[in-house]
Protein backbone atom coordinates (compact mmCIF):
# COMPACT_ATOMS: atom_id res chain seq x y z
CA UNK A 1 0.00 0.00 0.00
CA UNK A 2 1.37 3.43 -0.91
CA UNK A 3 1.61 5.99 1.86
CA UNK A 4 -0.28 8.40 -0.38
CA UNK A 5 -3.42 6.38 0.18
CA UNK A 6 -3.06 6.30 3.97
CA UNK A 7 -4.93 8.39 6.51
CA UNK A 8 -3.47 11.82 7.13
CA UNK A 9 -2.54 12.16 10.81
CA UNK A 10 -0.91 15.60 10.75
CA UNK A 11 -2.08 18.52 8.69
CA UNK A 12 -0.49 21.89 9.37
CA UNK A 13 -1.10 24.94 7.21
CA UNK A 14 0.59 28.35 7.21
CA UNK A 15 2.20 27.96 10.64
CA UNK A 16 3.66 31.17 12.02
CA UNK A 17 5.66 31.48 15.22
CA UNK A 18 7.54 34.55 16.37
CA UNK A 19 9.85 34.81 19.37
CA UNK A 20 10.73 38.10 21.02
CA UNK A 21 9.14 41.50 20.56
CA UNK A 22 9.78 44.71 18.73
CA UNK A 23 13.13 44.94 17.05
CA UNK A 24 14.24 41.73 18.75
CA UNK A 25 11.34 39.80 17.26
CA UNK A 26 12.35 36.80 15.18
CA UNK A 27 9.85 34.93 13.01
CA UNK A 28 11.01 31.34 13.25
CA UNK A 29 8.13 29.83 11.35
CA UNK A 30 6.66 31.80 8.51
CA UNK A 31 3.93 29.91 6.73
CA UNK A 32 5.16 26.35 7.19
CA UNK A 33 2.94 23.59 5.80
CA UNK A 34 3.16 19.91 6.63
CA UNK A 35 1.17 16.74 6.09
CA UNK A 36 2.11 13.41 7.62
CA UNK A 37 0.25 10.20 7.00
CA UNK A 38 -0.16 7.22 9.29
CA UNK A 39 2.80 4.89 8.96
CA UNK A 40 4.95 7.61 7.47
CA UNK A 41 8.23 8.94 8.80
CA UNK A 42 9.00 12.52 7.92
CA UNK A 43 12.46 13.82 8.70
CA UNK A 44 12.99 17.55 9.10
CA UNK A 45 16.50 18.83 8.51
CA UNK A 46 17.74 22.35 8.99
CA UNK A 47 20.34 24.56 10.56
CA UNK A 48 20.41 25.28 14.25
CA UNK A 49 17.76 27.81 15.15
CA UNK A 50 15.88 27.29 11.90
CA UNK A 51 12.68 26.34 13.74
CA UNK A 52 12.74 22.52 13.52
CA UNK A 53 12.15 21.97 17.23
CA UNK A 54 9.60 24.76 17.29
CA UNK A 55 7.64 22.96 14.61
CA UNK A 56 7.75 19.80 16.72
CA UNK A 57 6.54 21.67 19.78
CA UNK A 58 3.59 23.06 17.87
CA UNK A 59 2.66 19.66 16.49
CA UNK A 60 2.88 18.14 19.95
CA UNK A 61 0.78 20.91 21.58
CA UNK A 62 3.66 21.97 23.78
CA UNK A 63 3.37 25.46 22.36
CA UNK A 64 0.82 27.45 20.39
CA UNK A 65 1.29 28.95 16.95
CA UNK A 66 0.84 32.66 16.31
CA UNK A 67 -0.86 31.87 13.05
CA UNK A 68 -1.95 28.98 10.87
CA UNK A 69 -3.82 25.79 11.62
CA UNK A 70 -2.81 22.41 13.01
CA UNK A 71 -4.84 19.26 12.91
CA UNK A 72 -3.53 16.08 14.48
CA UNK A 73 -5.54 12.87 14.48
CA UNK A 74 -8.56 14.91 13.51
CA UNK A 75 -8.18 17.42 16.36
CA UNK A 76 -7.63 21.10 15.78
CA UNK A 77 -4.97 22.37 18.14
CA UNK A 78 -4.51 26.05 17.47
CA UNK A 79 -7.57 27.18 19.37
CA UNK A 80 -7.98 24.32 21.81
CA UNK A 81 -8.08 25.10 25.52
CA UNK A 82 -5.36 24.05 27.93
CA UNK A 83 -7.38 21.13 29.23
CA UNK A 84 -8.03 19.83 25.73
CA UNK A 85 -4.34 20.17 24.86
CA UNK A 86 -3.38 18.25 28.01
CA UNK A 87 -5.79 15.50 27.06
CA UNK A 88 -4.44 15.54 23.51
CA UNK A 89 -0.86 15.08 24.70
CA UNK A 90 -1.95 12.26 26.96
CA UNK A 91 -3.77 10.27 24.28
CA UNK A 92 -2.55 11.13 20.84
CA UNK A 93 1.11 12.04 20.88
CA UNK A 94 4.35 10.57 22.19
CA UNK A 95 7.63 12.43 22.58
CA UNK A 96 11.19 11.20 22.24
CA UNK A 97 13.75 13.77 23.41
CA UNK A 98 17.44 14.14 22.73
CA UNK A 99 18.23 14.07 26.46
CA UNK A 100 15.76 11.28 27.20
CA UNK A 101 14.13 13.12 30.13
CA UNK A 102 13.65 9.99 32.19
CA UNK A 103 12.62 10.58 35.80
CA UNK A 104 15.78 9.71 37.73
CA UNK A 105 14.02 8.26 40.79
CA UNK A 106 12.06 5.74 38.71
CA UNK A 107 13.36 2.56 37.17
CA UNK A 108 13.34 2.18 33.41
CA UNK A 109 10.12 0.20 33.46
CA UNK A 110 8.50 2.63 35.86
CA UNK A 111 9.39 5.43 33.46
CA UNK A 112 7.69 3.50 30.67
CA UNK A 113 4.59 2.98 32.78
CA UNK A 114 4.63 6.57 34.00
CA UNK A 115 2.00 8.00 31.63
CA UNK A 116 -0.38 5.16 32.36
CA UNK A 117 0.14 5.01 36.10
CA UNK A 118 0.41 8.69 36.80
CA UNK A 119 -2.13 9.98 34.42
CA UNK A 120 -4.77 7.31 34.62
CA UNK A 121 -4.23 6.21 31.02
CA UNK A 122 -5.93 3.29 29.42
CA UNK A 123 -6.22 0.08 31.36
CA UNK A 124 -4.09 -1.68 28.82
CA UNK A 125 -1.20 0.72 29.22
CA UNK A 126 0.55 -1.41 31.85
CA UNK A 127 0.35 -4.54 29.72
CA UNK A 128 1.43 -2.60 26.68
CA UNK A 129 4.30 -1.06 28.60
CA UNK A 130 5.64 -4.46 29.60
CA UNK A 131 5.27 -5.70 26.04
CA UNK A 132 7.22 -2.68 24.84
CA UNK A 133 9.97 -3.32 27.36
CA UNK A 134 10.23 -6.87 26.05
CA UNK A 135 10.00 -5.84 22.44
CA UNK A 136 12.75 -3.28 22.87
CA UNK A 137 14.98 -5.84 24.55
CA UNK A 138 15.03 -4.08 27.91
CA UNK A 139 13.76 -6.83 30.23
CA UNK A 140 17.10 -7.35 31.90
CA UNK A 141 17.50 -3.69 32.81
CA UNK A 142 13.83 -2.94 33.44
CA UNK A 143 14.38 -2.43 37.16
CA UNK A 144 17.51 -0.35 36.84
CA UNK A 145 17.58 3.34 37.51
CA UNK A 146 18.32 5.67 34.60
CA UNK A 147 21.77 6.73 35.81
CA UNK A 148 22.94 3.11 35.63
CA UNK A 149 21.81 2.69 32.01
CA UNK A 150 23.66 3.43 28.80
CA UNK A 151 22.45 6.26 26.59
CA UNK A 152 21.00 3.80 24.09
CA UNK A 153 19.09 1.96 26.78
CA UNK A 154 17.76 5.21 28.20
CA UNK A 155 16.57 6.30 24.79
CA UNK A 156 14.87 2.96 24.17
CA UNK A 157 13.04 3.34 27.47
CA UNK A 158 12.07 6.85 26.39
CA UNK A 159 10.71 5.47 23.12
CA UNK A 160 8.75 2.84 25.01
CA UNK A 161 7.33 5.59 27.22
CA UNK A 162 6.33 7.56 24.14
CA UNK A 163 4.41 4.55 22.80
CA UNK A 164 2.78 3.27 25.94
CA UNK A 165 -0.46 5.18 25.48
CA UNK A 166 -0.69 4.06 21.86
CA UNK A 167 -0.46 7.49 20.22
CA UNK A 168 -1.14 8.17 16.54
CA UNK A 169 1.83 10.54 16.31
CA UNK A 170 5.38 10.16 17.59
CA UNK A 171 7.59 13.24 17.66
CA UNK A 172 11.32 12.64 17.95
CA UNK A 173 13.61 15.60 18.59
CA UNK A 174 17.22 14.70 17.76
CA UNK A 175 16.73 11.19 19.18
CA UNK A 176 20.27 10.14 18.26
CA UNK A 177 21.95 13.43 19.12
CA UNK A 178 23.25 12.12 22.41
CA UNK A 179 24.09 8.58 21.34
CA UNK A 180 27.00 6.78 19.75
CA UNK A 181 26.61 5.49 16.19
CA UNK A 182 25.69 1.95 17.18
CA UNK A 183 23.05 2.97 19.72
CA UNK A 184 21.77 5.62 17.30
CA UNK A 185 21.27 3.00 14.63
CA UNK A 186 19.24 0.83 17.00
CA UNK A 187 17.03 3.77 17.91
CA UNK A 188 16.48 4.71 14.28
CA UNK A 189 15.58 1.15 13.45
CA UNK A 190 13.02 1.24 16.24
CA UNK A 191 11.47 4.41 14.90
CA UNK A 192 11.31 2.83 11.47
CA UNK A 193 9.48 -0.14 12.97
CA UNK A 194 7.09 2.10 14.83
CA UNK A 195 5.98 3.64 11.60
CA UNK A 196 6.10 0.61 9.32
CA UNK A 197 4.80 -2.04 11.72
CA UNK A 198 2.50 -0.06 13.99
CA UNK A 199 1.26 2.44 11.42
CA UNK A 200 2.09 5.50 13.48
CA UNK A 201 3.08 8.82 12.00
CA UNK A 202 6.59 9.83 13.01
CA UNK A 203 8.13 13.26 12.67
CA UNK A 204 11.87 13.18 13.18
CA UNK A 205 13.87 16.34 13.66
CA UNK A 206 17.57 15.89 13.18
CA UNK A 207 20.83 17.42 12.03
CA UNK A 208 22.06 14.07 10.88
CA UNK A 209 21.55 13.24 7.22
CA UNK A 210 22.21 9.57 7.94
CA UNK A 211 19.42 9.58 10.48
CA UNK A 212 17.16 11.29 7.99
CA UNK A 213 17.86 8.51 5.54
CA UNK A 214 15.37 6.24 7.31
CA UNK A 215 12.57 8.70 6.58
CA UNK A 216 9.91 8.32 3.95
CA UNK A 217 10.23 11.99 3.20
CA UNK A 218 12.91 14.48 4.10
CA UNK A 219 11.98 18.14 4.43
CA UNK A 220 14.28 21.10 4.75
CA UNK A 221 13.45 23.87 7.16
CA UNK A 222 14.67 27.25 5.97
CA UNK A 223 13.28 30.75 6.05
CA UNK A 224 10.51 29.56 8.28
CA UNK A 225 9.12 27.17 5.69
CA UNK A 226 9.36 23.48 4.88
CA UNK A 227 10.55 22.39 1.47
CA UNK A 228 11.27 18.91 0.10
CA UNK A 229 15.00 18.40 0.24
CA UNK A 230 16.41 18.17 -3.23
CA UNK A 231 18.49 15.25 -4.28
CA UNK A 232 17.19 13.07 -1.50
CA UNK A 233 14.58 10.64 -2.86
CA UNK A 234 11.98 9.64 -0.34
CA UNK A 235 13.20 6.36 1.01
CA UNK A 236 9.81 5.33 2.18
CA UNK A 237 8.46 5.51 -1.31
CA UNK A 238 11.07 3.02 -2.24
CA UNK A 239 10.43 0.94 0.83
CA UNK A 240 6.69 1.37 0.44
CA UNK A 241 6.82 0.40 -3.22
CA UNK A 242 8.91 -2.56 -2.35
CA UNK A 243 6.52 -3.52 0.40
CA UNK A 244 3.62 -3.14 -1.91
Amino acid sequence: MSILSRVTVVSARGLVKTFGRGRAARRVLDGADLDVAAGEIVAVLGRSGSGKSTLLHLLGALDRPDGGTISVAGRRLERAGERALTDFRRRHVGFVFQFFHLVPELSGEENVLLPGRLLGGEAGAARRGRELVERLGLEEVAGALPHTLSGGEQQRFAIARALVNDPELVLADEPTGNLDAESGAVVLQLLREIAARDGRAVVLVTHDRDAAAIADRVLWMGGGRLDPERGSPPRALRVGAGAA
Binding site: L62, H101, V103, L114
Partner: peptide, 16 residues
Protein backbone atom coordinates in the same frame (compact mmCIF):
# COMPACT_ATOMS: atom_id res chain seq x y z
CA UNK B 1 11.28 21.55 36.22
CA UNK B 2 12.54 19.09 33.61
CA UNK B 3 10.61 16.28 35.26
CA UNK B 4 7.52 18.45 35.62
CA UNK B 5 7.81 19.50 31.97
CA UNK B 6 8.23 15.85 30.89
CA UNK B 7 5.14 14.89 32.86
CA UNK B 8 3.21 17.69 31.23
CA UNK B 9 4.49 16.65 27.83
CA UNK B 10 3.15 13.17 28.63
CA UNK B 11 -0.25 14.68 29.32
CA UNK B 12 -0.11 15.70 32.97
CA UNK B 13 -2.42 18.61 33.72
CA UNK B 14 -2.28 21.12 36.53
CA UNK B 15 -4.00 18.70 38.89
CA UNK B 16 -1.20 16.19 38.38
Amino acid sequence: RGTVATLRACGAGRAH
